[in-house]
Design a protein around this nucleic acid. Structure first.
Length: 444
RNA sequence: GCGAACGUGGUGAAGUGGUUAACACAGCGGGUUGUGGUCCCGUCAUUCGAGGGUUCGAUCCCCUUCGUUCGCCCCA
């Protein structure tokens, strides 16, 4: 094949895109009621927005699509995540000066990382995420987790659990980092290469190493909770109490440290335990960041956020047999009995469309039988039949598929007649309260 | 960046170093020429991801490449 999408990217075709539309609609509903507003930032930023001096993560160091145009000294990078861009924007537009803090923001969009694709991991993937910036309060940690949790629950997902941990504030984290370095000092030579690198760059990451998980030094490793100062302990306690109060189940996992280096205090990860998820089972994850606003030269303000992988969300839903949205059915199909009535048929279709009916006709002069097969495939409810006779007398024959009842009326009366058929159908099928229809069968 | 498996029509797939690449579904046409969904008949891959090599001959063997899938790493 000569032309194809680049590795790790995909087209989202009709049949699949309806799932995305349904999820995006649901995302907007949830963010709306939680009073989070959408933010859209550029798909590329100056490289230094993502690449910050001390960051040791693979994402920033090995997986970014960084480019520089000829005749330009500007280095740009396709965003691998949104938090950095959102915080940059928060500072750039001085949202920290807005009267009603915190800023509560959400986004949905594509991210780019140069990774080896596998199940639940693509080079262009999509995230729905939230950021709450400007106020530090454990209740916001809770609210933001609650938003994500209730969103995935509303879809019907069951095989999920929340893992949570705290990294404490800088003082606690530094104390713990020193304790870890001290602890591993005599063991690091026998540990894996990644751990040796982590030992220098970010000793906390040694905790979630899968290679050295069972080694001696790991069993007696110091625990974060023993190094938390009082304030950090109290903060974490309040977060957990909040989750309890809202009935959100969680598991404390004190090896959870997260990959991005800006996290402080609360970090969490919501994973699916469904076997079909493959190795990439995290559906959404995030944490609090105390230093990021300042890094971007804003005031000393804290933020918290998470990001959810939409592709992974879809995998998780499908693994649990949840239907997310399907191609819409057709209201009407205009069937032609001769090639000569094409224009007349198109006029009829145009009238139907102008009145809000999803409608299609044949452009291939196919046989009647083939056109009827399309009617069945697209599940059209009504067929408008047009032959030489109808075209000559300015009429159409309308047939309702459910009972094959048909009637020839003047073209001018077509809409009235079809309205009548649909009203009859809805009156019969819809038992929703008037003015509060939730069945989706009504035309607005 | 590392490891493993795989790549045959619109789809799901069988197959073999040698003249016509099974079968099924879908599509289209017809039987039924202005009324479908069943049934029957016909038709539908000059070609087996791409490029090169071995061979008299390759979809099948070898190499390269692209891609897919799964895992490691990492992450949503």
């Amino acid at each position: 094949m000569k032309y194809q999408v680049p590795r790790g990217t995909q087209d989202i075709l009709p049949g699949e895109v309806e799932k995305w539309q349904m999820l995006e609609e649901r995302i907007r509903q949830f963010c709306h009621v939680y009073d989070y507003d959408e933010i859209r930032t550029p798909i590329f930023e100056h490289t230094n927005v993502f690449k910050r001096g001390n960051d040791a993560s693979d994402m920033v160091n090995k997986e970014m699509y960084t480019f520089q145009l000829e005749n330009s000294s500007t280095s740009l990078t396709l965003r691998p995540e949104m938090t950095a861009g959102v915080v940059r924007s928060f500072v750039e537009h001085k949202l920290f000066g807005e009267p009603d803090l915190p800023a509560k923001l959400y986004y949905v969009g594509p991210m780019c990382r140069h990774e080896r694709p596998q199940k639940g991991r693509q080079r262009i993937f999509h995230q729905f995420g939230v950021e709450v910036i400007g106020v530090k309060n454990p209740l916001l940690d809770v609210e933001c987790i609650a938003l994500g949790w209730s969103f995935i629950n509303s879809l019907g997902l069951k095989d999920l659990k929340v893992l949570i941990n705290t990294l404490g504030d800088d003082e606690s984290r530094n104390a713990y980092r020193e304790a870890l370095k001290e602890h591993f000092k005599d063991h690091i030579d026998s540990m894996c290469g990644d751990c040796k690198r982590r030992y220098e760059q970010n000793p906390l990451r040694i905790l979630d190493c899968k290679v050295d998980r069972d080694c001696e030094a790991m069993k007696s490793v110091p625990r974060m909770k023993d190094y938390l100062n009082e304030e950090s302990q109290a903060y974490f306690k309040q977060v957990l109490e909040g989750l309890d109060a809202l009935g959100i189940p969680y598991e404390i996992d004190d090896t959870l440290v997260r990959g991005l280096d800006y996290y402080t205090h609360t970090v969490f990860e919501v994973v699916s335990e469904n076997k079909e998820m493959g190795a990439q089972s995290t559906v959404f994850a995030g944490g609090r960041y105390d230093g990021l606003v300042e890094y971007f030269e804003g005031p000393q303000m804290s933020g918290i956020g998470w990001a959810m992988g939409i592709e992974r969300l879809i995998i998780a839903c499908e693994a649990e047999g949840i239907t997310l949205g399907e191609k819409a059915e057709l209201d009407a199909y205009v069937l032609t009995l001769s090639a000569d009535v094409g224009l007349y048929a198109l006029s009829a279709a145009t009238m139907l469309r102008a009145n809000g009916y999803r409608c299609e006709c044949d452009y291939q002069n196919r046989s009647l039988k083939a056109q009827y097969r399309t009617v069945d495939r697209k599940k059209a409810k009504v067929v408008v039949i047009i032959g030489e006779d109808e075209a000559a007398q300015g009429s159409v024959t309308i047939k309702r598929i459910s009972d094959k009842l048909q009637k020839t009326v003047a073209l001018d009366d077509m809409i009235t007649e079809i309205d009548r058929l649909f009203e009859a159908e809805e009156a019969h099928e819809c038992s929703c309260e008037p003015g509060n229809c939730t069945c989706g069968k009504h035309h607005e």
